[in-house]
């Protein structure tokens, strides 16, 4: 195995050692959302024709857990290694900045997909879900988890203390994921809020992902896919450029 694969494997083992916190807890949280919101709002919110609110909610909750856990994995691991100083043991090895990027992003993707799959499997106990395109479901899950894995690296590089990372998570990731159409179709919002939703990149992740289940979406799937791929490419280039320059890692 190469250094990159070992770093990837180390990251998997790391979150595996605290899997109650990193995998099981987010699944339970999503299920609680599902139980509460579906019970309260079923029949009260208009979504797609022929789709129950509970079924509509499930893909949104899955993608929200993919987003939050993709971000949490790379950001928490990296910021911890950076602040405690043990990142030095990776920095003094022949691992390149590109390998470093792939190892952290890939590990984030694995965790995000594990949590997402867990939410899906658990939700299937309560609701019947149609599948329009497995390919699109996978594609958006992969792109979403990769975007957030890369964003987690950027946030961890930027943060000098845990508090700053928590601020990034609470003031950027959480609002963007909650206001991205997880719980509603943006067509049910006033015009202003619809427009605002369209500049939220997480909206396109959720809308595209939901299209994979129902074959229906708020914006055309080509646009969602294009926006998400562009976001992935731009964010990856930014992250690679920060890593290459040694931003806050090498003085």
């Amino acid at each position: 195995m190469t250094g990159c694969l070992w770093l990837f494997w180390k990251e998997l083992v790391r979150f595996g050692k605290v899997s109650f916190q990193t995998v099981l807890a987010p699944i339970i949280t999503s299920l609680l959302y599902l139980l509460v919101f579906s019970h309260v709002l079923e029949g009260r919110v208009d979504v797609y024709e022929g789709v129950t609110y509970t079924a509509f909610l499930v893909p949104g909750l899955i993608m929200m857990s993919v987003i939050q856990n993709g971000f949490a994995n790379s950001s928490s691991s990296l910021v911890q290694s950076k602040i405690t100083g043990n990142l030095v043991f990776v920095q003094i090895t022949p691992i390149t900045y590109i390998e470093f990027f792939f190892a952290y992003v890939a590990a984030s993707m694995v965790r995000a997909l594990m949590v997402g799959s867990g939410v899906l499997l658990a939700a299937l106990l309560f609701v019947d879900l149609s599948v329009y395109s497995v390919l699109i479901i996978f594609l958006f899950a992969l792109i979403g988890s990769a975007i957030l894995g890369a964003l987690g690296i950027v946030a961890a590089l930027w943060a000098d203390k845990y508090d700053q990372l928590a601020a990034f998570q609470n003031f950027v990731i959480m609002p963007l994921s909650f206001l991205s159409g997880v719980f509603y179709s943006i067509h049910s919002l006033p015009e202003f809020w619809q427009s605002l939703s369209r500049i939220n990149p997480f909206f396109y992740l959720i809308d595209g992902f939901r299209f994979g289940f129902f074959g229906e979406s708020d914006v055309p799937i080509r646009i969602s896919l294009g926006v998400c791929l562009a976001a992935l490419i731009v964010l990856s280039l930014v992250t690679l450029s920060l890593l290459r320059s040694g931003y806050k890692l090498r003085t």
Binding site: M1, T2, G3, L5, W6, L7, W9, K10, V13, R14, K17, V18, S81, T84, G85, N86, V88, F89, V90, T93, P94, I95
Partner: peptide, 23 residues
């Protein structure tokens, strides 16, 4: 100089991963 370590891992794992980083 500083006593830095990764609190997630055991002694042998620490050395094994470190060797892995060198391929």
């Amino acid at each position: 100089q500083e006593l830095v370590y990764d609190p997630f891992f055991q002694v042998r794992e620490t050395l094994r991963f470190q060797a892995g980083y060198f391929g």
